[in-house]
Design a protein around this nucleic acid. Structure first.
Lengths: 208, 208
DNA sequence: CAGCATCCGCTTTGATACTG
DNA sequence: CAGTATCAAAGCGGATGCTG
């Protein structure tokens, strides 16, 4: 993209990350880092392959990400955020916060990847009883199961399942999201088709 | 711009404000609101007139800004942020913060408008002695003078001059900016050609 | 002159096909 | 798997024209 050519911090920032797709690529890296080209592409439905390559190159040139060779067993390259890239977290959090009301408007249309939940959940939820035993919540929605677990007063989200989760949620993405972020309560979530197995009280432990 | 078509808050936010120029239009409104078409255009050197009109219409459709008729004496329309638009402030602050190091890289190239300083200065500076008499600093750089004044523990920046400012700064934009944001000290600012008239101690009162 | 609308050459994007 | 190549369509920048 052409530079805005303005002596202004905001304009300079947009010169680097204001291109189409760029901030969504950053989202993927924040969630999946370090990850490979194909994983990025899966998390970015709709992007053209040439654009992904070009953006990655630009981000590398600007010191926001680095490419590195994967450890010996596999022969592929991995993409990772630099400290400068990590420093963009507040930007993604602020933009995501601002965009959340837009998800209520049109329910569940568009593409969806379950791992996209990781970023908002990790930044929004906290463990209100960090001294008690950690809890795990398994979430079944979208394209793959994820697990939410408390650790050090924070919440971690990872793909996969665990042997004995304290709670298992199954339902449509908007329903799960509204319940966990505190926008909707348990009753309305059930009414919207959410199924719960286990101890629903652990929700209070992490909801904002 | 085409929608990313992703059920993700960040992607939805970018559907609304991710277009080229859009966030810079928001910058102008945060600084100048309410303001007229021509003022916006002056603050956005390089934008095509049709793009400005189109972006303003999109922002209005999305409930981020409103158009309103100016009060009787003049017959023009004014653009203003809605509460929803104001809610974008943390995004601009975060992006601006992240972009600031980029200003050090290439000194003072590109277009510049003095009023662009208002946003970072108001969000970065605070009055460390809110109980004492307010102070005013007149800044002469770029295309017009601006005045920085303390009020209610915060700092306000407005275009123009005042009768008897406590301090008057004159110099190149990067020098002024570095001094006020605390990235550079007084000695290096002087060395870079900054001229001061008045009480330099008031700088300590507002610098971060 | 403020506030657009239209036109045109150029660049960027999106979709798909192709390659080591 | 991890990209490169190609090309049509859309978007952008700049100029210019129109209307009150």
């Amino acid at each position: 993209m052409r530079s805005y050519d303005q002596y202004c911090a905001l304009a300079r920032a947009l010169d680097v990350v204001g291109d189409r797709w760029t901030l969504l690529i950053m989202r993927e890296l924040f969630i999946q880092q370090p990850c490979r080209y194909t994983e990025l592409r899966y998390g970015l439905p709709g992007i053209a392959t040439n654009l992904l390559v070009e953006r990655l190159r630009e981000l590398e040139e600007n010191g926001v990400i680095v490419r590195e060779d994967a450890p010996p067993p596999v022969a592929t390259t991995l993409y990772r955020l630099t400290p400068r890239g990590e420093a963009l977290r507040p930007v993604l959090e602020a933009l995501g916060q601002w965009g959340r009301p837009l998800l209520r408007a049109a329910p569940a249309d568009g593409n969806f990847r379950t791992h996209w939940l990781a970023f908002p959940l990790e930044s929004l939820l906290t463990d209100h009883a960090p001294d008690r035993d950690p809890v795990t919540i398994e979430i079944h929605t979208g394209d793959q199961p994820i697990v939410l677990q408390t650790i050090d007063g924070r919440v971690r989200v990872k793909p996969g399942t665990v042997p004995h989760p304290d709670l298992k949620l199954t339902g449509e993405p908007p329903v799960v999201l509204r319940l966990l972020t505190g926008e909707g309560d348990l009753a309305s979530a059930r009414a919207a088709g959410l199924r719960l197995e286990g101890d629903a009280k652990v929700l209070r432990r992490v909801r904002p």
